[in-house]
Amino acid sequence: MIPTANPQPPFITLDSVTKRWSNGATVLDGLSLQAERGEFISLIGPSGCGKSTLLRLLAGLSGLSSGSVKLDGMLPESAREIMSFIFQDATLLPWRTVRSNVELGLELEGKTTESQRHKTSTELLQWVGLSDVADLHPRQLSGGMRMRVSIARALATRPKILLMDEPFGALDEMTRDFLNEEVLRLRENDQFTTFFVTHSVAEAVFLSTRILVLRAKPGQIAREIPVPFSYPRTAALRSAPEFLRLVGEVSAALRSVQVPSNPSNPGHP
């Protein structure tokens, strides 16, 4: 590669990030990575490759053993104001209505008035198609609707960085496809930079600008696969030959990093 003068440092930089548990096990080993504004990076890999840990390091929810993480020039703890985290389950507060769950982040930030929050949540609920259920409680919603509330809540603070930890893993395929399209639609509006952990190759290819295939023990980037399709992407893309070819390529890369399975090993498949 020809070195070019780059006046602006990358938006997100991870420099030889290593994470060890207190029992000495290495989860991530010298992982380096750079991301530009607006990228959608999917992290995919076998269980134990540290993809969720990587997300938690970016969020500052877990500390590094060595190396450095910079987000827009800030350490993870200071960058929380420009970040939102979407968890595997919807993590809604059951005692709050849908609307007041969406407003939670803004409320905790404490920079907005009640009427401003109301305006934001009204807009967002409209965006994710939940205006009709604004006054219901989470238990009255389906799993897919709850996840949409969770996404709306994450976007309410207008984050520059969105961290998503396998958010659609528990949903059925139809809901998942629908929400994938929804995420892309929301992304048109707010150009957030996304790190997306998933187990689904098709999902990763459909959403991402770049896919990182991680290997386990210790966690490292095994392959980096750019996704060339332009946005906006529509559902039709899923049946395009070049899409299926890329799904095949990522699946092959994933198989190559899979630890040979040992039938007596009670771990995850």
Partner: peptide, 14 residues
């Protein structure tokens, strides 16, 4: 209280 809910509050600097 589930870990994720606490993390959610930590992420909001609560």
């Amino acid at each position: 209280v589930p870990r994720n809910l606490i993390d959610l509050f930590v992420m909001s600097n609560a």
